[in-house]
Nucleic acid binder design. Structure first.
Lengths: 130, 130
DNA sequence: TCTATAATGTTATATTATTACATAGTGTTA
DNA sequence: TAACACTATGTAATAATATAACATTATAGA
């Protein structure tokens, strides 16, 4: 069974490039960037991405089919993530907001759901673009 | 300029099938269901879907690449949407929650963003599957 | 070492979405 | 009505995203 800190070779390569990026990366963009490191085909990238998401090391921005490194240590536990996305400059920022988490888990209780995780994507114009 | 209530032929066909469905529908599933009505190719479906989303008549469940009819009259204005998704039975339910909206718009103020819309997907086990 | 399991590599293919361009309808106004 | 801009439609081709299937190799325990 794989542990948090024991990333495999491909997982390390993929995580590394995502962490170095200032913007969300798409799977095929990752692929083209890691060809020189011996990763040749989509499944190798997608497998690494899946595991990294499971571990909470990265998040998928669903509305963009792109991946960002987790910027919040909380995610390792909750796998919950919230992002603000600027519709002008495309900047994506992770919102580390325990209030949202708390609110949603109490909301889950109220409607009788068992809380697992959530994904929140919040669109608008950032400070700079406003 | 197109108005809320004046849907075009293709938009009506697509909206109709989404409204009649009890689960989120994918674009190509919609396509195969409307071939008998004279819609033959993906762009016809995607164009209708785009417009319907813009109008707030339907929402896209990003994590599933699928579309559901809006179940809340509020969305027409805010284009904000929240869903609970059961990971066991796949049931998707729209959460009409003004608290979340209010909270997020005040949050936007706080971080200096101009609020446009949000998409929240909330995963867990529903009452029945728990 | 043996064995079970996880990870990797590879080819092919499925699924989702868009581009590009031709055609037809609709409303406005000169 | 004719000319026009604009929206919607139809169609073929292709781009972008993701997975299936299977062979091989590495790794960790018993």
């Amino acid at each position: 069974m794989q542990r948090q800190q024991n990333l495999t070779k491909n997982q390390k390569i993929v995580l590394d490039i995502i962490e170095k990026s200032t913007e969300p990366l798409k799977a095929y963009s990752i692929l083209s960037n890691v060809k020189k490191k011996g990763i040749n085909a989509p499944p190798q990238v997608y497998r690494a991405l899946d595991k990294l998401v499971d571990m909470g090391k990265i998040h998928k921005i669903e509305s963009k089919n792109a991946f960002v490194a987790c910027q919040s240590s909380n995610c390792k536990v909750s796998k919950a993530a919230a992002f603000s996305i600027c519709e002008s400059c495309e900047e994506v920022t992770e919102i580390d907001n325990s209030k949202i988490s708390k609110y949603l888990s109490s909301f889950a209780d109220k409607i009788g759901m068992k809380y697992k995780k959530y994904n929140l994507e919040f669109f608008g114009l950032c400070k700079k673009c406003k």
